[in-house]
Amino acid sequence: MTRPLQIEHTRNGSEGRYWADLGDGFEAEMTYRIRADGARIIDHTGVPKPFEGRGYALQLVRRAIADAREEDFRIVPLCPYVAVQFRRHPEWEDLRASPQPPDRH
């Protein structure tokens, strides 16, 4: 069974990162940019090779989903892994933002 990760979240201006210490100097991470309309564009998810296949990347995505529900923002799943998870979890569809920001006329 996959151990639950202690996921940290850091944000610096319009960029952010979810990450977890995996031990021995390894980290799992998922990065995003914040668009002008507040949507978070998740652009990268990474788990070191020795830790792949343990569900750690999915834990990072689930944390972002929980934060989106709690903080009321939408997600653009630009990262291929996150896009696949959105397809596998139709219950997240209400959190998907359009890849293009809405026009502001």
Rank of each mutant, 00 (worst) to 15 (best):
P101E: 15
W19N: 00
M1F: 06
A66N: 09
I65D: 06
L95N: 07
H9N: 04
V76C: 06
E91W: 05
W19I: 00
G53C: 09
T45P: 02
D72L: 09
N12A: 11
P90D: 12
E91F: 04
R35T: 08
D67K: 02
S98H: 13
D72K: 14
R88N: 14
W92T: 10
P90A: 12
I7W: 03
L58N: 08
D21E: 09
D72N: 14
R104G: 05
Q59C: 07
R63K: 15
D43H: 12
P101A: 14
R35L: 03
Y81F: 15
A68L: 09
M30N: 03
A28L: 05
I34H: 00
C79D: 13
G13Y: 01
H44C: 04
R69E: 15
M1W: 03
E29D: 09
V82K: 07
I7V: 12
A57R: 04
Y18R: 01
Q85A: 12
R88V: 03
C79L: 07
S14P: 00
H105W: 10
R74I: 00
Q6I: 08
D103I: 04
P50V: 11
M1I: 04
R3E: 14
S98F: 02
A68H: 03
H44P: 02
P77G: 10
A66V: 12
L5F: 10
G38L: 11
Y18F: 15
H89R: 11
I65N: 05
D103L: 14
G16S: 05
E91I: 03
Y32D: 08
A57M: 09
Y81S: 03
H89D: 07
D37H: 04
G55H: 05
R96K: 15
A83N: 13
P90E: 13
P48A: 12
E52W: 01
E91L: 03
V76G: 04
Q85K: 14
P101T: 14
S98M: 03
S14K: 11
P77S: 11
R62W: 00
V82C: 10
A39Y: 01
T31Q: 03
L78D: 11
L5M: 08
